[in-house]
Write a protein that binds this DNA or RNA. Structure first.
Lengths: 112, 112
DNA sequence: CAGCATCCTCACCGATACTG
DNA sequence: CAGTATCGGTGAGGATGCTG
């Protein structure tokens, strides 16, 4: 998304990966609630549309952060989970998540 | 930017604050190189336009993360620095920055 | 030097409808 | 159930020019 290459610091690169509108929530949900199939994930990310969820998942998958497992059944079943690489990102994200949690009231106040 | 209120996790809120295209770089630069005046900051954030730098700075200031000190001189001088609150965010961002730094090659590879 | 004011573009995202 | 396809609005972001 951000697209200021070459990156001037690691932060740019990281934000580029996780800055999508729903990516943070998706990563957090997958970490928090284990592997989930598409419909379950959709229900746990309130407000997201099918199109956006799929798009964000595909990008996360292309970045190697999310694993997509297809079960050839009827009806179809696809399960999403974090990869090891994705888990390293989740760990790196945790302090930021804590910060946001701790300052949420302030953030909501100053943000239109 | 992200605008999925109410936030489902602290991460959403944090990304909302720091997800702007140049905000991460600005915060990182201000932390790394002490207080800077506008022109200096501009030179240290390659590729940013005046308009965008000002806009991002104003938002960071409104969020209480950046302090703007005006020196009434001719020629004018304005100095930007992190607030204490801003420094807490910088600390929370450090692991993410390290992650991005460590995986930069991989990120650049998979990102169009 | 440090900004503000405009105009404009494009990709981000939402809504809707259809399919294997 | 888990997608794909298409259309269109909107606003972030860029280019340019002017000012205190």
């Amino acid at each position: 998304m951000a697209r200021n290459r070459p990156y001037t610091c690691g932060l740019d690169a990281a934000i580029d990966v996780v800055g999508g509108k729903w990516k943070a929530t998706v990563l957090w949900t997958l970490e928090d609630q284990g592997p989930l199939r598409f419909g379950e994930l959709r229900r746990r990310v309130p407000g997201v549309t099918e199109k956006m969820l799929i798009q964000q998942l595909r990008e996360l998958e292309a970045d190697g952060l999310v694993h997509r497992e297809i079960f050839h059944q009827v009806p179809p079943k696809v399960e999403y989970s974090l990869t090891d690489y994705g888990r390293t990102l989740e760990v790196a994200l945790r302090p930021l998540g804590d910060w946001g949690h701790a300052n949420m009231a302030r953030i909501e106040a100053t943000h239109p």
